[in-house]
Design a protein around this nucleic acid. Structure first.
Length: 281
DNA sequence: TTCCTGTTTG
DNA sequence: CAAACAGGAA
């Protein structure tokens, strides 16, 4: 079932196994794996996974445990479960064929905008833009010289895909983002874009448009920071009720610390003693 | 918007 | 070693 169209990867692209196939199932599997791990680490598990589950049907008929087993070394086992669910949906709802429409793909568990477009571009060779954070960064630096919102990036990226050469275009953009145009410490000297890049051409002025403007979530003072501190304290031993606020790092905010304690209990991570002392469950 | 989660990195 | 990362889900 696997076709080997274009089995030889173009010279400027690293010869990764998923670049030597247009089998949509193989592409889907590789993209889900690549969501969480760098290409180098994905190669071996990908080859083994495809040998064990060469089609959606073979994956769907296997128990989830087998799929998780084949996922060893990749982490994020929840995504293995999503892929298994996707395989079952492909068999149940699409005759065992990976769908080739954006909305059908996005309806599969674990498949969002990025992965859906990757399947369309890399398996079905459709001229859609595949936008991950790396591509967004390359476009922000090279084309615009300014940060771009999610919608603006997708619109721009779609407009740039050259007719009939979407596969190569998308692969190349992602390759540049992974090798030269990295998030931190971009290696402009080695970049094939050279002086075509708006940002490099302007002398790499600050702020770097490729650096995400919005931090992940302000960690300082967040619930997560307090929760982390509280769990750390609990690892060292039980925390009396009177010490909760200090343990969270909010000595002046007892109610907030109390909410964190309740959250930990609700999550099954901790339990309260008779006097309100909190300890690990 | 926020959370998830193993790996990478500064 | 804490924090950033990265798509997807809730």
């Amino acid at each position: 079932m696997r076709r080997a169209v274009g089995a030889v990867a173009p010279a400027s692209l690293r010869p990764l196994p998923w670049r030597a196939t247009r089998d949509p199932w193989a592409v889907l599997v590789s993209e889900v794996m690549l969501q969480q791990t760098q290409a180098r680490r994905v190669v071996a598990p990908f080859v083994a996974f495809m040998a064990r589950f060469p089609t959606p049907a073979r994956c769907a008929e296997a128990p989830l445990a087998e799929v998780v087993l084949a996922w060893a070394g990749l982490g994020y086992n929840r995504r293995a479960a999503h892929l298994h669910g996707a395989a079952r949906s492909i068999v149940a709802d699409h005759g065992g064929v990976v769908p080739d429409r954006l909305d059908d793909l996005e309806a599969l568990p674990g498949v969002g905008s990025y992965t859906a477009r990757a399947v369309l571009a890399f398996a079905y060779e459709r001229d859609v833009a595949v936008v991950d954070v790396n591509v967004a960064r390359v476009l922000a630096r090279a084309v615009v010289g300014a940060p771009l919102g999610t919608v603006a990036v997708q619109t721009l990226a779609d407009a740039l895909v050259p007719d009939g050469r979407g596969w190569r275009w998308n692969q190349t953009l992602m390759e540049i983002g992974a090798t030269s145009c990295t998030g931190r410490a971009p290696r402009c000297a080695d970049c094939p874009l050279g002086r075509c890049c708006a940002w490099a051409g302007a002398g790499r002025p600050e702020p770097d448009p490729g650096r995400p403007g919005r931090r992940q979530s302000p960690f300082e003072g967040s619930d997560r920071q307090g929760r982390g501190r509280l769990v750390s304290a609990l690892r060292r031993g039980p925390v009396p009720a009177a010490a909760l606020a200090a343990a969270c790092g909010w000595p002046q905010d007892g109610p907030r610390a109390e909410r964190m304690a309740c959250a930990l209990v609700a999550d099954g991570l901790a339990r309260r003693g008779r006097t309100g002392t909190l300890r690990l469950a």
